[in-house]
Amino acid sequence: MIESLQMTREVQVGNFTIGGNKRFALIAGPCAIESEEMSIEVAKKIKEICDKLGINYIFKSSFDKANRSSIHSFRGVGMEEGLRILKKVKEEVGVPVITDVHEPWQCEKVAEIVDMLQIPAFLCRQTDLIIAAGKTGLPVNVKKGQFLAPWDMKNVVTKMQEIGNEKVLLCERGNIFGYNNFVVDMRGLLEMRKFGVPVVFDATHSVQIPGGLSSCSGGERKYVFPLMKAALSIGVDAIFAEVHPDPDTAPCDGPNMLYLDDLEKVLTTAVKLDDIAKGL
């Protein structure tokens, strides 16, 4: 028996909604905030592409990348400066913004600026963090832990619901398979859709090689687009992708980030696949 795609609830982000069998939204930007100038440049270019293709867009970049391989790894510009830059992007480019939070005390402060909070995969079982994020009333994108089965994310949804926040999205980013290796089980996208919440596919972290460069993570950029196409063919509500003007010089996650100049071609195909999968 062939089952139809599970419908997900719609979650309001800024002036649009994600889910409900609508065209996928794009969550994209550099891994970490490097500067105001670069953040605005990337956000403007991606918004221009998304407007052309009819894709709702959320700018993503992190003020702190706390889960680093080495103590010497680049982490970002810090919360105060990062939030200032995210606010500038939001006002000047006119797009919603999202960033990571790592500790409960950060949530309320960050929620004053952003439109959506993101919980890193390593922290998806941290109850106090989930509750603090949910209590802001904002949508929360929770990345599935590399160590969890997709059905285990039901507990995350329940935690959010228990505090009265139904605006949760679940993000697939692959499972650790042996040493320094991620594998994406596409069945997990369908399993998490059963909870009725929007499901996001993280196309760039799914090709990461954690610790693969000894003191930092490696990645296989060549697999980003094939995995993205597979996820869209199955059916997702949003695509997460880290994008950079020159990934090879990026201070973090360069090997798995997409080139900004390649994004329009990638998204043009993505829209066609999404339309077929959802019958749009």
Rank of each mutant, 00 (worst) to 15 (best):
I163T: 03
G164Y: 10
N165V: 15
L169H: 01
L169W: 03
L170W: 06
L170E: 01
C171M: 06
E172A: 09
G174R: 00
I176T: 14
G178H: 08
Y179G: 01
Y179N: 01
F182L: 15
V183G: 03
M186W: 09
M186Q: 03
M186N: 04
R187T: 10
G188F: 01
L190T: 00
L190C: 02
L190E: 05
E191Y: 14
E191P: 00
R193I: 13
R193P: 04
F195R: 02
F195A: 00
G196V: 06
V199L: 01
V200K: 01
H205I: 11
H205K: 01
H205P: 13
V207A: 09
P210V: 09
P210M: 07
L213A: 12
S215R: 07
S215K: 08
C216S: 14
G218F: 09
G218A: 11
G219A: 02
E220K: 08
Y223T: 00
V224F: 11
L227A: 08
M228V: 09
K229V: 14
A231H: 05
D237H: 11
A238L: 06
A238M: 12
F240P: 11
V243S: 10
H244I: 12
D248Y: 06
T249A: 14
A250G: 14
G254N: 05
G254C: 08
P255Q: 08
M257Y: 12
Y259C: 09
L260W: 04
D261N: 10
L263P: 09
K265G: 04
K265Q: 04
V266T: 10
V266D: 06
L267D: 04
T268P: 00
T268D: 00
T268E: 11
